[in-house]
Nucleic acid binder design. Structure first.
Ligand code: FES
Ligand code: FES
Lengths: 162, 162
DNA sequence: CTCTTTTCAGAGTAATTTAGTCAACTATAT
DNA sequence: ATATAGTTGACTAAATTACTCTGAAAAGAG
């Protein structure tokens, strides 16, 4: 995965799914509202997540998405990898040829950084994050805001959910 | 710093400087030849490196650049930071407001990754790299190519190493 | 059967960022 | 003087990112 906002969005969305992962599938419209990500963008992301086997989809009314694996099995790395190219901070892409035909002075340095980042992102799963207090707090706040939005469906100017 | 080729180039160039850091200053034309980085681009990079106090410049004939600090004092982090913006994989830039006004679910996760990357890049200095065997080998090869280029200034179409 | 809700697929695009060039300048050694 | 080398900042082209738009197809409800 690369370190882009795309990957961050995907992790946010997947964490939202993990937090609301009871029996009924969650539809993207809800995630869109809670995480403030456009629906069409989410569709794009979940298409990839599904193809990588991280979520399963149920179509039609009452449908939505569900985690395809246990939340503890899904590391942040896997999520980011699913939506973005693999991270690789080397310039040569592992080919050891970024200087014409031979490797540059710093090839091994970047390789080490790759490993280091991968280690961190592989060491954290959605399950662990769900159990973290600071995450829980944010999630609760988001749910509360959602409920309020539903009760008085008033005209919030920027909000185009019709 | 960000993780861009700009930063990688800067590290390569600085390492070249560290490897040839004897009495005489090194001029950018040499670094350009050895590291295969355009001279004008190097000028841009070294302008920033100088402003951050990592190198010192000597103008005029026989001039060039020299490390302004001991090679062991210069971490990879400092080099990359000098030419690129500070790394920050959070979306909010530390403002905790990337979702309208409040922080998103994953703020702390990215903060942790920031720390992790910084730790790695701060833990390695140019001095350490100079003493590494694999780096030395590449450096020797680069020096050898340079000498050959100088002796028979011939037009080797693409292949210079056989 | 048909209407609505949902996912699915992929093309298309606007904005931003990156990587790199160019031109004109200043300082210094010989 | 003149050649060498650094200094500066504007400029540009290419690539990437972060999306949106359009139009399906599936499935359940009535
Ligand atoms: S990064 Fe692999 S050869 Fe330079
Ligand atoms: S990354 Fe800081 S609030 Fe989302």
């Amino acid at each position: 995965m690369k370190l882009t906002t795309k990957g961050r969005y995907a992790v946010n969305a997947m964490l939202d799914l993990a937090l609301h992962n009871d029996k009924a599938p969650i539809n993207l419209t809800d995630i869109s509202a809670r995480q403030d990500i456009s629906l069409t963008y989410l569709e794009q992301l979940f298409s990839k997540l599904r193809k990588k086997g991280l979520v399963e989809s149920i179509r039609g009314p009452g449908g939505g998405y569900r985690l395809a694996l246990d939340a503890d099995e899904i590391t942040i790395m896997r999520v980011m990898y699913a939506v973005d190219e693999p991270i690789d901070v080397t310039r040569c892409g592992g080919q050891q040829n970024c200087m014409g035909d031979v490797r540059c002075l710093t090839h091994d340095l970047w390789l080490g950084l790759n490993r280091h980042i991968a280690e961190y992102l592989n060491g954290i799963s959605l399950g662990e994050m769900v159990r973290m207090n600071n995450v829980k707090q944010v999630a609760d706040r988001q749910d509360a805001i959602m409920l309020k939005d539903v009760t008085h469906m008033a005209a919030t100017p920027s909000d185009a959910t019709h």
